[in-house]
Design a protein around this nucleic acid. Structure first.
Length: 327
DNA sequence: CGTGTTTGACCTGCGC
DNA sequence: GCGCAGGTCAAACACG
């Protein structure tokens, strides 16, 4: 509507510049939150994530750069050793190679990862709101994991929806919905203004988990998929395990309980993928700084072709809870 | 039958 | 207050 506010309005991440919900996280000099170093890993961990952060050490940098820690370096392999270059290896890397078991779980677990437990509660339905999923009470602890209140018509008037911690990253991929070990249920799709590509909304299928994610393609580069996660998983990726007798959670670590079918299935994740930092403020990967490249190189020179996601680096801009005003 | 997707309608926040 | 766009709901539908 307001042509003026189009930019802002269409910017799904415009509000990512708020205060951190995590005490151990701090803003970059420019006030933004990037994943870098252990603090970032911690942040991701709190999301129940162990995103590859690039090569080991030394990658941390000033504003915008995100350092990669060893713990995440391992993850790099998992997601896929970068083929270097920073540009997509369309068709490059053979995609059949199964990713090595993630070992970065220690970092994540150290952070608590999903251990936070009641980090999030269900907001899926009015019913869940009533009984066994009491509103978030961890806010007091500073985690700001506020109750995922029913964000719809059922929600009482005046009650504002509270944003949950979010982070985003962009990935070069042919597929929109990247596997991350969790089960997601698509609950909506909307056309995005100024973009020919729709935005899809997913919710974790775990009834007690309120994590959501939005997936959309960059209007600037259709090859790039921007994934935004919101909230924290209050469970492990057990959803997949139901169909698997193999506990990858036990094998790979809590944060990488990938189902065999997802990890090794050549037809599901064979598309070369490259994930790069995503500046939620600028909607761009900080390619100019070369951070991505460096990270990519540091983690990708293993030369291991990856059939799975090539998560080169993640500068998921940590977004976090912003003043309860978005809805 | 259970689970997931599609899609139009509806709600909400925000700028004007 | 209005209108737009983002976000969500929920019925219908598809699929294994």
């Amino acid at each position: 509507m307001d042509a003026n506010g189009d930019q802002h309005r269409s910017d799904p991440f415009a509000d990512f510049t708020a205060i951190s919900a995590w005490p151990h996280l701090g803003p970059d000099p420019d006030g933004r939150y990037f994943f870098g170093g252990e603090r970032d890993g911690a942040a991701l961990g709190e999301f129940g994530w162990s995103l590859p952060m690039g090569g080991s050490g030394g990658c941390g940098g000033g504003g915008g750069s995100f350092g990669a820690r060893d713990c995440f370096g391992d993850v790099d392999q998992i997601i896929g050793a970068g083929a270097g270059g920073g540009q997509v290896s369309a068709g490059a890397g053979s995609s059949s190679a199964p990713p090595p078991p993630p070992r970065g779980s220690d970092a994540a677990s150290a952070v608590g990862g999903t251990a936070g437990g009641d980090a999030s509660t269900s907001n899926r339905s009015a019913s869940s709101e009533s009984s066994e999923d009491p509103p978030e009470r961890s806010a007091a602890s500073g985690e700001s994991l506020l109750a995922p209140e029913k964000p719809n018509k059922v929600r009482k008037k005046g009650q504002k929806r509270i944003k949950q911690p979010r982070f985003a990253f962009m990935t070069k991929s042919e597929v929109d919905h990247l596997e991350d070990g969790y089960r997601w249920r698509k609950y909506g799709q909307k056309a995005v203004k100024n973009s020919p590509y729709p935005r899809s909304y997913y919710r974790c299928t775990n009834s007690k988990c309120t994590v959501k994610k939005r997936v959309e393609r960059s209007s600037e580069d259709p090859a790039i998929v921007v994934t935004t996660y919101e909230g924290q998983h209050c469970h492990h990726s057990a959803g997949y395990l139901r169909s698997s007798t193999i506990s990858h959670e036990a094998t790979f670590g809590r944060h990488f309980a990938y189902p065999p079918s997802q990890i090794y299935h050549p037809t599901r994740l064979h598309v070369p993928i490259e994930t790069s930092p995503y500046n939620l403020n600028t909607h761009r990967a900080p390619t100019s700084s070369g951070d991505s490249q460096r990270l990519l190189t540091s983690s990708g020179e293993r030369g291991e072709p990856s059939g799975v996601n090539q998560l080169l680096s993640t500068e998921g801009l940590l977004a976090d809870v912003v003043p309860p005003k978005m809805r």
